[in-house]
């Protein structure tokens, strides 16, 4: 249940933020980790409040605004230069993203 998970997250500590940052491949300094741990914990606590009112008779909502049909015209816009596209990749080869072995060795 999402609500339980959110409540569980309220004890978001510095190690967990460091772990999340690693998964998201975001480099954080020690100072940033310190600041963000506090902020993220606060956010998680606020979001967890939803769990207190989410009863079975309240349908889950995916979008807070009553918007539909936001579309764009089928016209080409410039893509990134390939160097820029690959710049954030940990490794690249032959203008492609290099990823580690996909299947485990059996």
């Amino acid at each position: 249940m999402p609500s339980t998970r959110l409540r569980g997250m309220s004890a978001l500590n510095r190690d967990e933020v460091a772990h999340l940052a690693m998964l998201a491949r975001i480099d954080l300094s020690q100072d940033e980790l310190q600041t963000l741990s506090g902020q993220l914990e606060q956010i998680a606590r606020s979001v967890a409040k939803v769990g207190e009112v989410a009863a079975d008779d309240v349908p889950p909502m995916s979008h807070p605004l009553p918007l539909t049909n936001v579309t764009r015209v089928d016209e080409v816009r410039p893509s990134l230069p390939v160097e820029d596209a690959l710049a954030g990749a940990p490794a690249a080869q032959q203008r492609r993203f290099l990823v580690p072995r996909i299947l485990d060795e059996e």
Binding site: A24, V73, R96
Partner: peptide, 24 residues
């Protein structure tokens, strides 16, 4: 050529927002 038709949206870069193609 490889990776010449990519942008922050289709690379899934943080903060990029997708918008639906009306013709599709």
């Amino acid at each position: 050529d490889p990776n010449t038709q990519v942008c922050p949206v289709c690379l899934g870069l943080p903060g990029a927002l997708p918008v639906v193609n009306a013709t599709a």
